[in-house]
Computed example of a mutant assay.
Amino acid sequence: MRTRTRKTSLIAAGVIAATLFGTAAAVAVPVLQGDWPYAGQSHGEDAKTYTLAAVGDIACEPDDDDNAATPAALKCGSPSLGGYDAEFATAKQTDAMKPDAVALLGDEQYEVGKLSDFEGSFEQAWGGLKFLERPAPGNHEYYAYTKKGDNEAGQNGDGYFAYFNGHDQSGTPNTAGQAGDDSSTNQGWYSYDLGNWHIVSLNVECNSPAFGNDCSTTDGGLLAQETRWLADDLAHNQKQCTIAYWHQPTISATTASTPTVPASAPGAGGQEGQVADAWWKLLYANHATLILNGHEHAYARFQPLNPAGQVDTKHGIPEFIVGTGGEALDTLAKNLDGSFANPNVVTGYDQGYGTIKLTLGQHGYSFSYAPALQGAGLPASALDYSDSGSGSCNR
């Protein structure tokens, strides 16, 4: 396990909404003396920029007694996975960014996100950044995993909330904390502020018992309540710039084109991405700046899009997929001529692992992405990729 020394002293756990993260939904984080948490950075109301790191799909399943029945190919140490090397590499890369916050884009822990798995894998690499982490859950934190010879029951968010929010002696998660509420009326959606930026973390894992296996955004179910909460949160937002993130992307980069479902179609990547089309419509109507997703184990940057997946250079929202946290790699969907199957993908990378750095200014942002480790069996030249740029807030 990593250890490090920082020139800060922890006084007590508390709510930092009035200091670093503005006055949004309460998120339990430590109150620190001195700089937060790195020397030489200004974080008062007059701060001009903030650094937000973002990545998902991170930690391999530990090879321990709790996972004795899991096939070796699915656990840390498998040659087909990024494994510990990859998750430590992305954690080190993220730490070097000196972020003010880290947006985790779901599937933090494979295969089903048990608390013991979080403690045995994710914590080993990413634990040093824990109190900067602003997570969203993924399907591997909620759903059962019954593929590739494995048969593990879904955790319904229990391990996820127990790790990020804390738990009692029996392992029962606290009902509120860093990952938002864990209750029958709120499954971990929340918002926070960084300077002039309003940032929203959402939970799209609706096909789970916690959501009543109900993926409607318009009935009386939990996902519909979350959607109404999002509408209200955006309506009351006073910040010029807005980021929203959740796990499964609405617009896909790895789903190959078919005659009936092209990769550029909203929801091409699955049920959760399809239902989140309602969130795209809300975010578009409220002039959101960026949408971040994971789930697809690659990096992809899209053109500014409207909710129909069409290029809209005036009011559209760029989507970033950053599913390169360490667990495994997918293949970007391409046509026979090598072009992206989704023509709205500006650039993409599926040869290694890395975290995106977003620098959030008063009225705009810049971004940079570079891999921290190449994929298994790939040459060092796989690290030559990089992507960077900037944009303005839509309000």
Rank of each mutant, 00 (worst) to 15 (best):
M1V: 03
L10I: 10
A12T: 11
V15R: 04
T23S: 10
A25L: 03
L32K: 08
L32A: 13
D35Y: 13
Y38D: 15
H43L: 10
V55Q: 06
G56Q: 07
D65I: 15
N67S: 10
T70K: 09
L74N: 08
C76M: 07
P79N: 05
S80I: 14
S80N: 11
G82S: 09
Y84G: 00
A89L: 09
A89V: 08
K92I: 07
Q93P: 04
T94F: 06
K98V: 04
K98N: 11
P99W: 13
A101Q: 11
A101C: 02
L104H: 00
D107Y: 03
Q109V: 01
K114D: 06
L115W: 02
S116V: 14
F118D: 04
G120I: 09
W126S: 06
G127H: 03
K130N: 11
F131T: 14
L132I: 04
E133H: 00
P137K: 09
G138A: 11
G138M: 06
N139R: 02
A144M: 03
E152R: 15
G154D: 06
G157S: 12
Y160C: 03
F161N: 07
F164N: 00
T175W: 00
A179M: 08
S184N: 08
T185H: 08
N186S: 11
N186E: 14
G188F: 12
Y190K: 02
S191I: 00
H198D: 09
N203P: 07
N203S: 13
N207A: 11
F211N: 06
C215D: 05
T217S: 14
D219P: 03
G220H: 03
R228K: 15
W229V: 12
W229L: 10
K239S: 12
H247R: 01
S252Y: 05
T254M: 03
T255D: 01
T258R: 01
E272M: 07
W279R: 06
W279N: 07
K281W: 02
L282S: 08
H287L: 00
L292N: 08
N293T: 12
E296I: 01
E296G: 09
E296V: 08
H297P: 07
F302H: 06
P304I: 11
L305Q: 12
Q310F: 00
V311D: 09
V311T: 15
I317W: 05
G326N: 07
A328V: 00
V345W: 03
T347R: 02
Y349M: 07
Y349S: 08
Q351V: 00
L360K: 04
H363N: 13
F367W: 06
S368N: 12
L373P: 01
A376V: 05
P379S: 14
L383P: 04
Y385H: 11
